[in-house]
Amino acid sequence: MANITSLNVNGRKLPVSVDSQTSLLTVLRDYLNLTGAKYGCGEGQCGACTVLVDGQMTRSCVTQAGKVAGKQISTIEGLEKDGQLHPLQQAFIEADALQCGYCTSGMIMSGVALLKKNPKPSRAEIVKHMDRNMCRCGTYLRIVKAIEIASGTAKEVRK
């Protein structure tokens, strides 16, 4: 089986030696110690494993590492810049858009992908884009609000 020797993650070329068919999620978590992306289902249904590949929302649990070798992979760990949270990270805190937090990395990465291609999404566009991300604690309305805060379209912040 073909092996890959490195992955570009968060702007850095990281050496790793794995079979190219290994899931990107496994490589990130178990070989590169980037555990921000989570395992939730292994079938691309829950979105907890979401990362960006060349800016596109990607389910890392159903993506083979070989398919993304050479591409730019962004994970939650790379979102904070110089100690400054990404506006969507900040908005998640402001909107209290999490309970257990296990879905949060995937939610934020999916939201970041949305805001990249659509900086002022409508509520319906947010729901449509985020619909493949699950939150079992039921904080969906707050996540919508967080995305609206980050995009500057929020009407009021829930307290």
């Binding site: 555990t35 760990e77 979102l79 904070e80 990270q89 998640f92 805190i93 209290d96 999490l98 949060t104």
Partner: peptide, 12 residues
């Protein structure tokens, strides 16, 4: 706010 919220939104 949630105690430790920053660690959750950064994946830490």
């Amino acid at each position: 706010p949630k105690v430790g919220a920053r660690d959750f939104v950064t994946g830490k």
